[in-house]
């Protein structure tokens, strides 16, 4: 894709490095919704490297619609408006801990026109010169079968995009950066 004249060149991406918590760690980062929100679920897992070792200096960010499938953003076809769910932020951010674990507190997003419920995910870490992007889908969700993005993913790898039940109110979503069971990443 060539740049046409008059267009500004993009600022390149660089790694977050190992000390990202100085700038990016928020006490309320994992709270896509406030504690005590009806329907609250925890979604989390472990971030692994290509040797199967946990990545202990990574950062996971999430972005999703509210339970009505709405975004508080001017691009939403219904227009920007605060969610009907009090305190809903849509955005989550969780640094990985000493065991590579991360977790967010959220609610299941509603379906979007033509798409199954999903959460977009960015992964940042030392050794990643650019973020990698993936998506979390929900287990036992009939709409997954007709989701246009899942349809483009090789069938033998699609399971890496679907969270697993992990006890009441919990879903597990491990992310494998490289190697066996490598998570499907998306060029957005």
């Amino acid at each position: 894709m060539s740049e046409s004249a008059g267009r500004l060149g993009l600022t390149p991406s660089q790694t977050v490095g190992p000390f990202l918590s100085i700038g990016l760690d928020w006490a309320d980062g994992p709270d896509v919704v406030p504690a005590g929100t009806p329907g609250e679920i925890r979604i989390g897992g472990v971030l692994y490297d290509g040797a199967g070792e946990p990545v202990t200096d990574g950062l996971i960010e999430t972005w999703q619609a509210d339970p009505d499938g709405h975004f508080d953003h001017p691009e939403d076809p219904r227009g920007a408006a605060a969610s009907s769910l009090p305190g809903f932020r849509g955005f989550g951010r969780a640094a990985t801990d000493g065991e590579g674990r991360w977790e967010i507190r959220t609610v299941k997003p509603g379906a979007l026109p033509g798409e199954a419920p999903h959460i977009d995910v960015s992964v940042f870490a030392r050794g990643l010169l650019d973020r990698v992007v993936t998506r979390i889908y929900f287990p036992d969700e009939a709409a997954n079968v007709t989701d246009p993005l899942l349809a483009e993913v090789p069938a033998d790898r699609a399971a890496t995009l679907v969270a697993r039940p992990d006890g009441p109110g919990r879903l597990r979503f491990d992310i494998r950066l490289q190697g066996d069971g490598e998570t499907v990443f998306l060029a957005v």
Partner: peptide, 16 residues
């Protein structure tokens, strides 16, 4: 050990 080995799936941009 951190760069994915598989090429990413190119996806079009939707609402999210």
């Amino acid at each position: 050990l951190r760069a994915p080995a598989q090429a990413p799936i190119v996806v079009r941009h939707r609402l999210t």
